[in-house]
Structures are given as C-alpha cells and as structure tokens.
Design a protein around this nucleic acid. Sequence first.
DNA 1: CGAGCAGTTGATTCGTATCAACCTTGGTGG
DNA 2: CCACCAAGGTTGATACGAATCAACTGCTCG
Lengths: 238, 238
Amino acid sequence: MRLDIHNSDIPLLCRACEARHKGICGALDPKQLQQLGRQTGRREVAAGTELVAAGVQTDGYANILSGIVKLSKLMADGRQQIVGLQFAPDFVGRPFAASSDVSAEAASTVRICTFPRSALEDMVRQSPGLEHRLHEQALRELDDAREWMMTLGQKSAAEKVATFLLLLSRHVDPLVEGYSDHLEIPLKRSDIADFLGLTVETVSRNLTQLRKAGVLTIQKNRLVTVNDFSLLETAAGL
Amino acid sequence: MRLDIHNSDIPLLCRACEARHKGICGALDPKQLQQLGRQTGRREVAAGTELVAAGVQTDGYANILSGIVKLSKLMADGRQQIVGLQFAPDFVGRPFAASSDVSAEAASTVRICTFPRSALEDMVRQSPGLEHRLHEQALRELDDAREWMMTLGQKSAAEKVATFLLLLSRHVDPLVEGYSDHLEIPLKRSDIADFLGLTVETVSRNLTQLRKAGVLTIQKNRLVTVNDFSLLETAAGL
DNA sequence: CGAGCAGTTGATTCGTATCAACCTTGGTGG
DNA sequence: CCACCAAGGTTGATACGAATCAACTGCTCG
C-alpha cells in the first residue's frame, strides 16, 4: 500500500501525534517533519513546572501533546492573572519575539514536544503554511482572550464560575464521551480564582451554590459532573 | 532621481499613507500596491459609525489612516465590554473568517482605506510577507488583550482609570509633542466605563480624584493634561 | 501521628453599583 | 439672540456583592 510507504517517511514520534494533523505540524510535509524531528525532544513535565518564564529569553518552543498549560501574568505586588489556558495540540511560545511578559506553567502533567527557536524559524521560511497555522492559533487565542475580557469585566461572580465550567467542558475533551459532562478540573481553587479575578472563597461558595441548585455534582474537589448544561448556561448569563 | 521614478509607480493614495510603511501595506511592492490600489476606496466616517457588525458577514477589510476605532462585544442582556482600541495604521477586520463576534465602531472621526475580502486574499497568496504583518498585528493585539485582562481582573477602580490614561498617552501620539502629556480622550465616560468594567459614576469620581491629587488637569471633559506621569504610574499600580 | 496544604463555611468590612439630583454644554428653533 | 432641551458629566446617599479575616475539615505525605 502506497500510504504505508509514504507514511514510513514520517518520523515515528510524529505518527501518533495530534499536533501532526490539527496542530502546526499539519502544515509540514514528510521531509520537513523529518528535518524537524531530528531537532525535537519529547518531555513529560509535572504539574507546576514552569515552561516559559515571563520576561526571560527562551531558546525554544513546544507543542502540547497532552495536558493543560496555564498562561499567567504577574504584577509587581504579587497579584496574578491567568490570561489563558492551552490544550493539545496548541503551540507554546511567542513566535518572532525573544521573550514575552506571559509565563507558561504546566497545570497538570503535560507531555510536550520541544524544538529550538531556529528550527521553527527555518521551517517558517520554507513553508508559508506554517506561519498561517501559527497565525490562526493567534487569532483563536485573541478571540478567547476577548471573550474572557467580557467575563472579567461584566459578569458577576456566579456567572464567572459557571462560564469557567462551560469553558472547561468545551475544551477538556475526555477520551470516552462526545460532550464532556464529566469534568476533571485541572486547576486548584486558587488558580480558578486567579483566572476569574475572584478570591478562593468566592469561587468555593459559588461552586457549592451550583451544587445545591442541582446543576453540578461534586464527587471530589477536582472531580465534577455537570447535570444540567442548560441550567449552567443560564447561570453563565447566556 | 531614481527614487522619484520608482516612487511614481506607487499609487497616489498610498504615498502619504502611514499604513504604507508601518502597516500591512509595507509588505507589498509597488506593483502590488497598484493592483490593490485599483480596488481600494478611502472613506471618512463620523464618530459612532459601525464599521464591522458582530456576527455579520463582511465583504471587506480596512486600514485605519487616522482616528480611533473601538472593538466591543455585547451580551444578550445589553451589557457591553470594549475589548480593544485600534489606531492608525492598524488593520480592521478578521482575516480568514467570514465574521466575528466583535463589532468595530468609529470612536472619533476616522479615515479608512477599504478593500474587498478577495483583494486581501489574493495578496496574501502572492506575498507571504503580508500574512506575516497580519500575524504580528494579531500577536500585538493578543498582548494588549492579556494586559487588559490583568487590569480587568486584578486592579481597583482607581488603578483601572490610571491605567487607561497611560494606555491613551502611549497610543494617541499627537502631532506636536514627542510624548503625549496632552490628551484628547476619544471616548465618552460611558465608553471608558465599558472598557474598564466600571460604571460612569465610578470613572468620573476617580478622574476627579486624580485631578484633586494634582496628577491631572482637566481642561474640558475630554481634554486632559497629565501633570505627573510617575504619579500616574504609581496610581496605575506600576 | 502530626504537619501542611487544599478546600469550605461563617462573620464582618469595604469598594463599587445603584439610585437620584444636579450641573454643563452644544445645538435648535421660535 | 436667547430659551429650551437633550445628552454628557459630576456629586451625594444608600445598598449590595465580593473581599477579608477567621475558624474549621479533610487529605496527603513524611
């Protein structure tokens, strides 16, 4: 079968990789994948590991293979805002800039495929399709950020918490179900609070509100089942 | 002089245009500018004019030549969040998507250079440099949006107002001065409120606070002079 | 088993929204 | 020309929502 022959040109690492199709590597042909493959490394990092530090020059980029990465900004006095969440097969890093004032940290155990800055830049020069993919991800992240600005600026605490849960259920696509009513929240309460511009206490109170209203069942702290999506959407202000 | 001869290839419209150098058109050569020039139209629109409606398919794009454009999102119940401000020579519109859930409205009198969707798409196919420019603008807007998430989520009302004034003084580059301590605020109080996630009253109160503290002088409602930038930065939480 | 971290719940405080009155300005038509 | 009006803006009194402070419960790990 031709397909097998053709496929055999693709590095082993890439064959089962999600980023290979939906991610940025989808823009590359087998030859380019091989070239890139020679410079990549797979890593599995524990929750809490900092992948990219704010304001620090980074040597490379990465694709997320599994797990969740949180992007955050810090103020001088310690206040923190989480400004984005990334899932497989997102690209991690700031293209065309030595550093950024956003830091990236593994929220759960994360598997990533890393490659040096120069490798990406070479590839971009070779195939414009790659920049297009990066551009599309940037536009998607921009939409997400603006959606979140709406939430941060206009919604009440209860609406914020509900909105956050909906966001998760859309992204944390579990292996089994089609739509995810069964959530494993990848963040601790303090992270959720930093994401929503609230305090831990307020997040906690509003989760119990939703539980008491029958919208959720909370199996364990991080393990939640959504019983009624339409109620949750109403609670989110939609 | 060669330069003149060469220059004569560039459409008249483009010669004095800021977007020609710093904007996306900087990626195009004279021939392409001519081609694009045949399809462009200049318009001057009054403050309040809607340039792009949320969720509505648009036929085209535009470059801002002068003036300020506000991007906003609306909730079902009428709550509004301004999610971005654009200045010359920014590109207006959502590349590669028929529509977006963000609406664009002229905040001041705005001069724009419009062109049809197909023209942009043709150009992008011809020169990868153009997509690169669009990509860079998207990344810049993403940085701005995340910076603003920090402000919306973590800062107090007083800090928000100060941060807003600093943002303006950085962008509204007046013709005369090098750094802009002399501001003409392009938004009314209710817009500022929508931008900051506050109410008109709170914005007003905090502006008078800053005036009484000597940080600002308010000549007229929209006309403000910053007397002390370092005080303003302190007030912004920096 | 105790220490420490994550999470919940309750009492109180504080900041901002809300409601309401008032002032200012620019435009319009008698 | 001035009276009027509506829209934009300010200021004050009060109400409410979320932060803060504090106590307590479970869980995990050495």
